[in-house]
Simulated assay, not measured.
Amino acid sequence: MDKSFEEIMEGMKTGAPEEEKTDAEMPEYIVENGITYRREGDFYVPDLRAEEAIPERIGRYGRARLKFLRDNRPEEENRMILDGNINEILEQLNEEAENRIRELTTELERKNPAPDKMKHQLEWVAHMNMLKEQAIEIVMNEMIYV
């Protein structure tokens, strides 16, 4: 038989003993007001678990953003953790950063054409690496360190 809060309080005022339940009768988990509670001894505590960022899933640029948030904006990181969407946000940021780097590298190559790949292979590799590093630096300043 479930009692309301008022009935329990009334019983305490009158001195009527409340029925005690044994461990077997007390459920391990209960849900009240949309919040799950788990039993810890004789008490129920909210069963809150925050999702943590999974480095293998969030990629290079997601990890860089996570490090930036931890060092400079911990409240934003905590908000994402509590909202439970930190992995999705960082995965999406990583994908957008990689796409932006590809676009920027292509754009920079049009502005600064590379030497002939067949005649000057090492110069071509060095030039393409330089363009990619420039694109990465731009993306880091535009998307990660903001």
Rank of each mutant, 00 (worst) to 15 (best):
K21S: 15
T36C: 14
R100H: 08
K21T: 08
M9C: 02
I81P: 14
E20I: 06
P55S: 00
D116C: 09
H120W: 08
V31W: 13
A97M: 03
N87V: 15
A53R: 09
D23W: 09
I81S: 06
E20F: 02
Y145N: 05
E7R: 05
R65F: 05
K132S: 03
D42C: 08
I81A: 07
A114N: 11
I136Y: 06
K132W: 01
I89Q: 10
M128V: 14
N87S: 10
R49A: 14
T14G: 01
I86W: 08
G41P: 00
M9E: 05
E6C: 05
G15A: 07
R65P: 15
K21I: 11
E10N: 01
Q92W: 01
Q121C: 14
D71F: 04
A114G: 03
D116L: 05
N99V: 07
L48M: 12
K117Q: 06
A53P: 10
T22M: 05
G15F: 01
G15C: 01
Y37A: 02
A135W: 04
T14Q: 04
E76F: 12
T106M: 07
M9F: 08
E107P: 12
N87R: 08
R73D: 14
E98G: 07
A50C: 05
L90I: 10
E52S: 12
A126C: 09
A135N: 01
T106E: 13
N85S: 04
A16T: 08
W124N: 08
N99I: 05
M12G: 03
E20T: 11
E95I: 10
E142T: 03
A135F: 00
P27W: 05
F5H: 08
E7P: 00
